[in-house]
Design a binder for these strands. Structure first.
Lengths: 272, 272
DNA sequence: GTTCCGCATGAATCGATAG
DNA sequence: ACTATCGATTCATGCGGAA
């Protein structure tokens, strides 16, 4: 059995990242501290200066990522004086100038988002999952994340007996099958770019940024076993736990020592 | 009973809009022709020139809208050479320079998005619903869309449940969302900024751009009876039909004469 | 009168082919 | 090289005819 490496670096990723090898990582999944959020731990970057603060990091990530790799950035602009701030879309434009391709924007629909009500605003129940690449061609394993088919197949396929289904499939092989049999024999469909995932609000000891299902989905989609996953803002280590469970090597960087310890204990638990 | 006006103007909105009074409209809801789409009916604007093409329109809309009014823009960037084009986020930045406030971005999750399979991309199942305002304070009737699960949510969400429940229960993504049943069992649907609506693929002669539920939701949220609703890219008149049904005055502008006729007939049917 | 099934139809995207 | 057109691929939905 292959040995899986799980590295944790404590420190500022701007200082740690230069130590990583060029073109060495297959997937970067991270949720950086949002602008002006978590002031007590990260010092809180002002929204107007967020892009300038973050661009040196993305420059290093561009270097570290393999040409066939993918960078998934979980981010959402906050409301500043009644308006959505533009630092996220500014960041997209600036990252393209750095050489990144803005391949896609997934939507993370948070089903059980925090309750709350404002006079001019509803609850914010979605976040951006920006996909960036170094090239237009990159590795993608779409079959790994297929989902069951919708009502059409479920409701109508159900009435066919199993022998009927088998018979249809055998007909395909012998050339007697109907075109429909191609459809009926299928149980799964490819997903879309909207991900429905509930937030995990059970752990209050550490701020769980995103649920395990999120890095898991992208790890399955963009990496194979033995590939390398990087999270430059590791937090409590959700990404690394998932990577290890899926037999991917992983590197986590985290400024706060307390989070590093939480991550180490979670990794250790799993190793046992 | 109050008389409800429903005006239809045939022509280019760039020429018609200057004829409308300043500060006269409470809500603008529209879905302009997307870049390089619908070439047969509309010209088909190149993505690189889309912003310059659209800005004169938004300048007029800014003049026409009441200070307390809201502008909802339904739009989505297309893929150009393997990358999401930036004309939508460019447009946001340019509209802010015009004086618009980018208050919020709603997500329209399209259940039945266009099918297809590509080597490095999944189906696109969401569009942007950008909310712009002239001031930080604007009219908003939240209670009108916070109805119990009867009115809007029941009908739209009920259909969603079968597929989603199947997909959730299968746990293909391992924890890929929790139980939607929590949503369904709740008596009150607190709206968020994510709207789940299927496109209406009627087999009629005209293709409805967006489902009636969409302008209906925003008309209830941002206008009262007797207010004025404007759709500068009317299409077949979905927005105007909804406005009339909800007892809002409305103005529609449409370049294609054929669509104007369709809209007139739909309005006429309703009047009977 | 239900339920069931066939079918057309989409604000799509990519790769190949043609001018 | 660079653009324009076309076929192949894919799946949720609602309508209408059939059982």
């Amino acid at each position: 059995m292959q040995n899986i490496c799980t590295e944790i670096h404590q420190g500022d990723c701007k200082e740690i990242l230069p130590g990583l090898a060029t073109n060495s990582v297959d997937l970067i999944v991270t949720s950086p501290p949002y602008a002006d959020q978590r002031k007590n731990t990260y010092g809180g970057v002002h929204p107007d200066k967020y892009v300038e603060w973050f661009l040196p990091v993305t420059a290093e990530l561009l270097r570290v990522l393999k040409p066939t790799g993918t960078f998934i950035l979980n981010i959402k602009e906050r409301v500043v004086s009644g308006e959505r701030h533009t630092y996220v879309i500014d960041l997209i434009l600036r990252m393209r100038e750095q050489g990144w391709f803005w391949t896609e924007e997934f939507i993370w629909h948070k089903k059980n988002c925090y309750p709350g009500k404002w006079p001019n605003r509803f609850r914010d129940s979605w976040e951006r999952l920006l996909q960036f690449n170094k090239n237009k061609k990159f590795k993608m394993y779409q079959e790994e994340v297929m989902v069951p088919m919708g009502d059409w197949a479920q409701g109508r396929l159900k009435n066919l007996s199993k022998t009927d289904q088998l018979r249809d499939e055998s007909k395909v092989g012998s050339g007697f099958g109907k075109n429909v049999s191609n459809w009926l024999s299928r149980e799964k469909a490819y997903p879309t770019n909207v991900l429905h995932m509930a937030t995990e609000c059970n752990n209050k000891s550490h701020s769980a940024v995103f649920p395990e299902a999120l890095p898991e989905w992208f790890a399955k989609l963009f990496t194979a076993e033995g590939d390398w996953v990087l999270d430059p803002f590791m937090g409590s280590g959700t990404t690394l736990c998932v990577a290890q469970r899926l037999k991917r090597h992983s590197i986590g960087i985290e400024l706060v020592e307390e989070y590093c310890q939480v991550a180490r204990s979670k990794i250790a638990e799993f190793v046992i």
